[in-house]
């Protein structure tokens, strides 16, 4: 089973949000994904027998766009494959657009487990990550990330 990520839950009236600080950009993206799935179902209850490689592209140098594309892609994968994801290992992160396309890019290997409604605790449904109050910013303490999800 995966470990639950550290984050602060934002007190948003209608939706849910997370905020955390990561030591580098790769872990910022990985932990954002872990937080999103931990909100859906605690990660320490999710296995990692299912895996898939995922590639996402965003606008060149636009970290907020890449973050939303990354999280949206994982959410779509979970919905269409009927899985809950628990582990995220980014193999390639290109934010300046030097990769195959003309934009930024993430390639990652993700692990999870097929949803079995009978034995799984689903806390909330997340419809989407939003740009509202979104933050992906380097500070003295590290990379500050804040994401509010529509639930």
């Amino acid at each position: 089973m995966a470990e639950r990520p550290h984050y602060t839950e934002i007190d948003h009236t209608a939706d849910v949000g997370v905020e955390f600080c990561a030591h580098d950009l790769v872990s910022a993206f990985e932990r954002a994904a872990a937080c999103m799935f931990d909100l859906i179902s605690p990660l320490n209850e999710i296995g990692s027998g299912w895996s898939r490689r995922v590639a996402v592209e965003g606008r060149s140098g636009d970290l907020e766009h890449l973050m939303i594309r990354w999280l949206s892609e994982l959410l779509y994968m979970a919905t269409s494959e009927q899985v809950l994801l628990s582990r995220f290992r980014i193999e390639e992160l290109d934010v300046k657009g030097c990769g195959a396309g003309d934009g930024s890019r993430i390639v990652a290997l993700v692990h999870g487990e097929r949803i079995n409604a009978a034995c799984r605790t689903i806390r909330i449904e997340i419809k989407a990550p939003t740009y509202h109050y979104l933050r992906v910013e380097e500070t003295r303490e590290g990379w500050m990330v804040r994401v509010i999800f529509d639930t």
Binding site: E64, K127, A128, T130, H132, L134
Partner: peptide
């Protein structure tokens, strides 16, 4: 949800294209 997601992405490109200034990207 998917229609909104898809077109929000389209709009991210439309905002600079049409020279629109907004206080919130959403």
């Amino acid at each position: 949800y998917q229609v909104c997601d898809d077109y929000l992405d389209v709009m991210q490109h439309a905002v600079p294209k049409y020279g629109i200034s907004l206080p919130d990207r959403q």
